[in-house]
Design a protein around this nucleic acid. Structure first.
Length: 998
RNA sequence: GCCCCCGUGGCGGAACGGCAGACGCUUCGGACUUAAAAUCCGAUGACCGGCAACGGUCGUGUGGGUUCGAUUCCCACCGGGGGCACCA
């Protein structure tokens, strides 16, 4: 008979809440206490409720938290709601109900479900990103970004006021592209090319220009940029939210169009975001994903002069031109032509050592210089190509990656090293968004250039000689590896590494190029055209210049709107709040409010900091508390946030760190991704030769006879579509044959057994509510942790749950007895006695040893997040208890304590019945006695030539000689050793004996 | 194509240089029951020999290597999963 888990679990959940059992102590109340900050990725409270994937990570962190509390740590283990977001808004648009209402309901449901699992959160620290008391500080952090810049010298964020000082004091000067440089003293002020100065000083700028310079440096800035506009969602999306040209949410098509948007200068942190990954304990695969996303490439920029002559593609191909000839070529051109032709095209390359192998050049079709360099005769072809590329969607461009296309512009560029004239093409395999939007093409040593050269019959020249045996550039393939430079006068004979360095230095000295580092990472598009998000604490003047609100004006709350539908245009829904938009400052000047809202990531970028001090009205977090709790010691969540949330929050954290708002450079010290829980295994039947799916009607409780029928059905019917979800199908019907399965009764029929991601459409979603109802939270927790390693992907299997149910029933029977709680629905009787079997009796040595081993192993396994093996160890202890007539009180207590992190409700109940008034939540973790881990005798396996031939039992302290003698005389071993020569005898202490014989 | 991870009984998995298959499920046998369910006890990698206790052979995707000894380490291949994908 099962114990009454329903009543017990309710009782203890109420007890924990009422007693605030899991409250984390503020640092001043916990002097000298070591801390642990154990964090879950907080959920988006969707209408669908909790999924079985959520409790997997939550239970893992709960076990860790409960364990560290018992180990005497001050544990911060909070939960909250990432509640802004698109689904609530879309639901609101559909039903007309305000997103706040549905969000509140969803949060309530999530909280109920999470509390029913007995998770040890400190509920006084619960946060909700849509609460104005919370998003006030999201807005405040945005203002920190707005009021800061990335100092190129200090390589860190600094307040804008510092920038002003640097500019006014002329420590920094402004380059023509608006970027800042260290003042190179007088050199930077030299006049070059007549009237044009390279760099300018602050005082030389007009007030308007000064404003532009400042705004151009802010970490949060406005820009007119080509964005990912999704008409179906009525909003723009971040690059990270677009997958294969479709929106990550909903899979709607996304188009590029230029719009005024808020951007965050995450690119300024590219280096630190990449480098600091080394300091953090994260899965290597995830670090790699972030590094790939940041995409750092070290190389050089090289300036190619445009050849002044025009030419048709047929009569000129790349040919070496003697240096002496260049001068005369220049002389041929008229002054007029020279004025129209831009001087240089700058390319970026990671292989400057292959510069001499550049036989043509490619610009992105969108490159601004295309218009000016194209010759009249090539004009129509170029125009047509540019139009065709512009019409292509991202998706089309993606689909055509194999076949290279492009058009010759008619213009030539001059290779700065050998003064060769090379044709300039445009092609869509060069992207405007990366590097300089232009490349030098080295077909011999770049696959894409090679394909292009092959297709358009452009010359291929080898300039890198691979080490012998490493392949080489040929007519069939390019060679992209390292080797020795050849056909390159300046660097011949140098290794690729040295050649890169030598040529880059040379280019730099000649003023023809420079070392350069490029990133794939783009600045973060931070505004959305939505209602249900944080409003920007920004007002705009008539020209669209942005001004920050004062901190006293925060939070800027969302206006009440009856109609929050997308406008169907890029105009955000907040533009409908006519009164709200109007703003006048103290001087009476009129402004309009920014009507974009922040993306969902904003709230989750810093929530881990607010948990530390959730009620603080004066600061986003108290500095002293922050220093105590940060960094997060363990962060558990799904891998889907690898480049979104986890990159964004690291970025924000680093900005806050630079501004002395937080004390650590990284927020999350140790990060673990829990594996996906897949749906229950599905069996699909196919006919072997045809591979055609055949149907079976639903069969759940099949016996042998039904199996025969099923097989006959399979053989006779060939309908498609149906699948067989069988409970005992695998054992009854199926036998493994290689990689597939075969029906026992008819081996001609192949069976495909697979599990899929849980999804509504597949109908394989498991609802935690029903599992908890049928088996209880403790069993549910144990089952999820016992399925396999936390980080592995694993299929759900309802059938296996009963094992955990039996385990806990067994524990109850062993320690409490099976006379109680037989009647359903009744509260447990007086929490009186534990079992009659609890008695002051000695325990057999093997049983005690198992307890000590379990105390040790469970602790180690929890610290290593190996919950499945920890539970196996607990089961072993319980199995030992089952055979005992009586169990001593001390034994029962220790066992209950190490069970508690996994199955806290039943543990608390038994603990109370063992005579304790206090919760065990902060009772000390039991100690084990190392001396009791080993038996007084030990059993040793004995091998002969590596094969097991016998076992001997010897005293634990036996010496090697005795052991070897005993081993040799073992009858099983004797038969294999007698009459042969023992060449070698090995004794691995406490492990085994091995004789090598001939 | 490139990068990362993973292949162990009927199933989930354990061991990660030292007794392969801990622990759970399943199945089979037994106990209890008028009966069934639940529960409890025992067996359960495959093959061969034996009435039996027991003994032997094979076995961790495939092929090779290192080692007294390899599921574990190294090389190649096959299969599965995930990430990136014209990033110069």
């Amino acid at each position: 008979m099962a114990y009454n888990f329903t009543a017990i679990e309710k009782k203890w959940q109420q007890y924990w809440l009422a007693n605030k059992t899991f409250a984390a102590l503020d640092p001043d109340k916990a002097p000298g206490m070591p801390k642990r900050y154990v964090l879950d990725m907080f959920p988006y409270p969707s209408g669908a409720g909790l999924h079985v994937g959520h409790p997997e990570g939550y239970t893992a962190t709960d076990i860790v938290s409960r364990y560290y509390r018992m180990k005497g740590f001050n544990v911060l283990h909070p939960m909250g709601w990432d509640a802004f977001g698109l689904p609530a808004e879309q639901y609101a648009v559909k039903t007309g109900r305000h997103p706040r209402l549905t969000t509140e309901e969803n949060i309530k449901n999530f909280r109920r479900q999470i509390q029913m699992l007995g998770l040890s959160y400190d509920w006084d620290r619960e946060i909700d990103t849509t609460d104005p008391g919370y998003y006030k500080w999201t807005q405040w952090i945005f203002l920190q970004l707005f009021n800061s810049y990335f100092d190129p010298v200090l390589k860190r964020a600094m307040p804008i006021s510092h920038l002003m000082n640097e500019l006014v004091n002329e420590n920094l000067v402004i380059a023509p592209d608006g970027s800042l440089r260290l003042n190179p003293t007088t050199e930077g002020l030299e006049e070059v090319a007549g009237e044009v100065r390279i760099e300018r000083l602050w005082r030389e700028l007009s007030v308007e220009e000064q404003g532009e310079v400042i705004d151009g440096q802010r970490l949060a800035y406005q820009d007119e940029v080509p964005v990912n506009w999704c008409p179906a969602l009525g909003t723009v999306l971040a690059n990270e939210e677009v997958i294969d040209g479709k929106s990550e949410v909903g899979g709607f098509p996304v188009e590029r169009r230029p719009m005024r948007q808020w951007m965050l200068r995450i690119t300024a942190y590219a280096d630190r975001l990449a480098d600091d990954l080394d300091s953090v304990d994260w899965p290597e695969s995830l670090k790699e994903m972030q590094r790939n996303w940041i995409g750092k490439s070290v190389g050089a920029e090289v300036d190619f002069e445009i050849a002044p002559e025009t030419s048709s593609p047929t009569d000129r191909t790349a040919q070496p031109i003697p240096t002496s000839a260049v001068g005369s070529a220049n002389g041929d051109t008229t002054a007029e032509e020279a004025e129209n032709v831009p001087e240089v095209i700058t390319v970026f390359t990671t292989r400057p050592d292959t510069l001499c192998g550049a036989t043509y050049m490619v610009l992105a079709p969108e490159h601004p210089l295309v218009e000016t360099i194209t010759t009249p005769e090539q004009q129509p072809a170029v125009e047509a190509y540019r139009a065709a590329v512009a019409a292509k969607s991202e998706r089309d461009r993606m689909a055509e990656t194999k076949e290279k296309t492009g058009v010759f512009t008619g213009a030539y560029a001059i290779n700065p090293v050998n003064h060769e004239h090379v044709p300039i093409w445009i092609a869509d395999y060069v992207l405007m968004g990366y590097g300089t939007g232009a490349i030098m093409a080295v077909p011999a040593h770049d696959e894409r250039d090679f394909e292009f050269a092959k297709k358009f019959d452009l010359p291929i020249r080898q300039v890198v000689q691979p080490a012998p045996g490493h392949g080489a550039a040929s007519a069939e393939r390019s060679f992209t590896g390292d080797g020795i430079a050849i056909n390159s006068p300046l660097i011949d004979g140098l290794s690729t590494r040295d050649a890169k360095e030598r040529i880059t230095d040379w280019l730099d000295n000649q003023g023809l190029g420079r070392k350069s580092i490029k990133y794939k990472l783009r600045d973060w598009l931070f505004s959305r055209q939505r209602y249900w998000g944080e409003p920007f604490p920004i007002v705009l003047d008539e020209e669209g210049n942005a001004f920050p609100l004062d901190i006293n004006e925060l939070p800027l709350t969302l206006p009440e709107l009856a109609d929050f539908k997308p406008t169907g245009t890029p105009e955000p829904p907040l533009s409908k709040a006519k009164d709200w938009i109007r703003y006048s400052n103290k001087a009476g000047e009129l402004f309009t409010r920014e009507t974009n809202t922040m993306p969902q990531w904003a709230g989750s970028c810093w929530y881990y900091l607010r948990y530390i001090d959730p009620k603080n009205r004066n600061r986003f977090v108290d500095p002293e508390k922050e220093r105590y709790w940060m960094p997060v010691d363990l962060y558990v969540g799904g891998v889907e946030h690898a480049v979104l949330h986890l990159l964004y929050s690291r970025f924000w954290h680093k900005v806050l760190y630079d501004l002395d708002c937080v004390s650590t450079p990284e927020p999350f010290q140790r990060l673990v991704n829990q594996g996906l829980i897949l749906g229950e295994m599905e069996f699909h039947f196919f006919e072997d030769d045809m591979g055609r799916p055949v149907s079976l009607t639903e069969v759940h409780e099949m016996d042998e006879e039904a199996t025969e029928n099923a097989v006959r059905m399979v053989a006779s019917r060939r309908e498609t579509g149906e699948k067989l979800l069988g409970k005992r199908i695998d054992e009854l019907l199926v036998e493994r044959k290689g990689d597939s399965y075969v029906l026992k009764a008819n081996p001609a029929i192949r069976v495909d057994a697979r599990s899929f991601k849980m999804s509504k459409s597949r109908g394989n979603v498991v609802n935690p509510d029903s599992i908890v109802r049928d088996y209880g939270a403790d069993v549910f927790r144990l089952y999820e942790m016992y399925m396999g390693p936390l980080t592995d992907q694993k299929p759900w299997n309802t059938r296996d749950i009963v094992g955990m149910s039996r385990f806990l029933n067994g524990v109850w029977r062993n320690l409490v007895g099976d006379d109680e709680d037989r009647r359903e629905g009744e509260a447990p009787s007086e929490p009186s006695s534990a079992s009659r079997r609890i008695a002051d009796v000695p325990v057999p040595e093997p049983v005690e040893r198992q307890l000590h081993r379990a105390i040790k192993k469970v602790a180690e396994d929890i610290e290593g997040l190996r919950f499945n093996t920890a539970i196996a160890e607990l089961i072993k202890v319980n199995n030992e208890l089952t055979h005992l007539k009586a169990i001593p009180h001390w034994f029962a207590e220790r066992f209950v304590l190490i069970l508690a992190p996994f199955a806290p409700h039943i543990a608390e109940e038994i603990w109370q019945r063992l005579g304790h008034e206090q919760s065990l939540a902060r009772h000390a973790w039991p100690a084990y006695d190392p001396a009791r881990l080993v038996d007084s005798t030990m059993e040793l396996p004995v091998q002969v030539n590596g094969k097991l031939r016998g076992k001997i039992t010897v005293p634990a302290d036996a010496d090697e000689g005795t052991i070897l003698t005993t081993a040799k005389s073992d009858p099983g071993v004797k038969t294999w050793v007698d009459g042969k020569t023992v060449v070698k005898q090995l004794y691995v202490p406490r492990k085994l004996v091995n004789f090598v014989v001939k």
